[in-house]
């Protein structure tokens, strides 16, 4: 079927506005089957918002969002809190949005190492355990598209690597597309096909292969504190205004930031996003890019 070549989800020039402020704007994003796309960016850069637009949880205020028909989605939200009034065991949670095959559920629980917890109440789990439960549940659905919003939060460092391995394994096993949101600017999963850096818009995107194969990237896993190496880097010479428009270095103002606007892409030099404390005194979100000359 020709449809099989269509992306699983497509966002084109999509943006979400809340109370006169654009949370994210002008996002073009497509996830193909079998592809792993990672979203990175500082807090409040619109990563979750972008994922929610892609999932249809949020309707874009401009641009469009489209999903394949009958798309089976597995979603691991950033934050799930289970009310204490809910009696809910791990085993029952696996079937939350419809019964999955019990063999699939058991396999997913074993793979994520939570099989022994299956009769435990969900709200008694630790953060890391619950995170694995969320992942197991999404996996067991055998989704076409897996959306993981900061899946390694609350997981210790060695567990983090194991989880990334597992996520890659899911892609290889069931051939689903994966949209992954990383809470860490510096660590991007090695198996990622494409990285998108967001900061209210798409700052840059590209393959992390060059970076992943480099020695620096491998040492990154060992020495995270010295993680001056970014996966993908770029330069900014424009300012984002609170209304979502962009002021460029030459003083012109445009509606949004186009990929070719004021971005100077190059490889293998670090970048650091810094945000002024508490959104800045004047409420304007700024970006500052630091170059590391190579």
């Amino acid at each position: 079927m020709a449809q099989d070549t269509d992306p699983l989800i497509t966002l084109s020039r999509a943006g979400v506005e809340r109370a006169g402020r654009w949370l994210v704007r002008g996002v073009d994003l497509a996830v193909q089957p079998g592809e792993i796309v990672t979203l990175i960016g500082p807090n409040g850069s619109g990563k979750s918002t972008t994922a929610k637009m892609a999932l249809g949880i949020l309707k874009p205020d401009e641009g469009t969002s489209a999903r394949r028909r009958d798309l089976v989605v597995g979603y691991v939200p950033q934050k799930v809190s289970i009310d204490w009034t809910l009696p809910l065991t791990v085993a029952r949670f696996m079937h939350l949005t419809g019964r999955v095959d019990q063999a699939d559920a058991d396999a997913a629980m074993k793979q994520t190492g939570i099989h022994d917890l299956r009769s435990a109440e969900v709200r008694t789990l630790s953060g890391g355990e619950f995170q694995r439960v969320l992942l197991a549940r999404a996996m067991a659905r055998k989704p076409d598209l897996l959306v993981l919003d900061e899946p390694v939060q609350g997981v210790d460092f060695s567990g983090e690597i194991a989880l990334y391995e597992m996520i890659k394994g899911i892609r290889d096993d069931i051939g689903c597309g994966i949209l992954l949101i990383s809470h860490d600017l510096h660590v991007v999963m090695a198996a990622t096909d494409r990285v998108l850096c967001l900061n209210g818009h798409i700052c840059c995107q590209g393959t992390p292969t060059a970076v992943a194969s480099s020695v620096e990237y491998q040492t990154l896993f060992g020495k995270r504190a010295a993680a001056t190496l970014a996966v993908y880097e770029h330069d900014h010479d424009h300012t984002h205004l609170p209304d979502g428009r962009v002021r460029h270095s030459d003083g012109t103002v445009t509606d949004s930031c186009h990929p070719q606007d004021g971005h100077h892409h190059g490889h293998h030099h670090g970048h650091v996003h810094t945000l002024p404390t508490a959104e800045g005194v004047d409420g304007i979100e700024r970006e500052r890019e630091t170059h590391h000359a190579r």
Partner: peptide
Amino acid sequence: WTPLFAATVNWELAEAEGM
């Protein structure tokens, strides 16, 4: 029951997974 319970546990998760 299933959609209603899923939405009770987490609205966004239910919405994302077509409930």
